[in-house]
Design a binder for these strands. Structure first.
Lengths: 232, 232
DNA sequence: AGCATACTACGTACGCTGTACGCCCTGTCT
DNA sequence: AGACAGGGCGTACAGCGTACGTAGTATGCT
């Protein structure tokens, strides 16, 4: 009978009783991977590069992580550890949730690859659980069934991710001059066909109109609405 | 001086004036790629497999698409073409937006890879624009600045994606028995540490409690709230 | 009519990826 | 002291995206 080591990385002890002490740690590996992802994007993260940046052999990483996917779990949980949360609810649930959202946005601004990745994986590492715990603590007074609260938590997190991703897309689009030019050309051309009258009107009216100056204000407004729903 | 063919695929004509008529079409290529993604997931989509399923040489695809990324644009827009939208607003904005959301959810249930992908790419193909047009038509009476409407559109779309992705994750988690067992083991263990009292309580209270029976009801409730915000 | 041009089709090849396997070494338990 | 579980990692393989070059073909101009 094989031991069948669990796929879920959080179920594996970081260090086993036997054998030599590992030369690296999960935290160090996650940090190296995060640095790579920040610099080159998710696609730039490869086992070889991580190992090289740690001064390790490529295959050594597989002693720590059963496959690359699990590495993503480590990365996401390390980022979840960056949330700076108070020890407990302040009493003002609305303010607590808004602060929670701001912490999330800040973390995702530092790590633009997070929103797309987080949606595809269940985030249940220790740091992620700490975030969930904080949310549930804030919602303790709120009289709702357990699964409804979890749903609302997913909604809040999702909204934060969406906004962060949207912001990242804007930033990227603004970055490439060629892309921006092509986009305008294309939209103008689409508007000219007459197939999209409302779109054309919207497009025309937005030209020459300064975009919202303060992204934080946009975020606070949008997330404020979500928080209102959650606390309703 | 080089012609500098545009990166944006929608700016390239599907067929050029000169040369032999192409043996394939964008639609056929997108369909093949979508079938692959549906069957094997996004990671299973490769240029070689698409070409093989079309009976074409691998490199022939590059006559239609400048790079794999653009292929994703084709795929997403083809899916956007599956939305069944009425020609115009019915007069009941709330009902129209709910119907729009339901169409989106239906499409994403058929194509589970869409939500994760759509967040990372600007969706501006002809079919996507048709969706935007419909939204703006519904919102025509609503007295808001143009960019605010676009923000709300992003919010609605994002919410649909989030829900679809959440559902897909649930489905996947329910699928693997081993994974489910590992998850319960881990959560029980985490709860036992005492570090997450609220989480433990929530976890305990949700055991033995039947999950919401009708996913559509959950969706309608959640998206209904979002629509309320949009029309507020 | 005939040639230049611009395009399609695609075989080959390169550099990169994740990771299975096997070897040797190290620390702990019996 | 010996067995053994695990860490470290070099090699190797299948598969990836795609650059490049060659051959064939439909169009536009002269």
């Amino acid at each position: 009978m094989t031991t069948d080591r669990p796929e879920l990385i959080w179920l594996r002890p970081e260090r086993s009783a036997r054998g030599p002490v590992p030369a690296h740690s999960r935290a160090a590996i996650a940090a190296a991977a995060i640095a790579l992802a920040d610099a080159e994007g998710l696609a730039g993260v490869s086992m070889r590069k991580i190992a090289a940046s740690l001064g390790a052999g490529t295959m050594s990483l597989y002693n720590y992580v059963p496959a690359k996917e699990q590495l993503f779990d480590l990365m996401l949980d390390a980022v979840a550890g960056e949330w700076k949360l108070p020890d407990g609810p302040s009493g003002d649930a609305r303010a607590d949730l808004l602060e929670f959202a701001k912490q999330g946005l800040a973390a995702m601004r530092r790590h633009a690859w997070v929103p797309a990745l987080i949606l595809t994986r269940p985030t249940i590492g220790p740091n992620s659980l700490r975030c969930t715990e904080f949310f549930l603590a804030v919602m303790a007074e709120n009289d709702q069934p357990a699964d409804a609260k979890m749903e609302l938590f997913a909604m809040l997190n999702g909204s934060i991710c969406m906004y962060a991703q949207w912001e990242a897309n804007q930033r990227q689009a603004g970055g490439s001059e060629q892309w921006q030019r092509e986009l305008v050309t294309y939209l103008a051309q689409a508007a000219a066909t007459g197939d999209y009258p409302h779109l054309a009107a919207t497009f025309a009216s937005s030209i020459g109109q300064a975009p919202d100056l303060d992204p934080d204000a946009v975020f606070t407004r949008a997330i404020g609405r979500v928080v209102s729903i959650i606390l309703a």
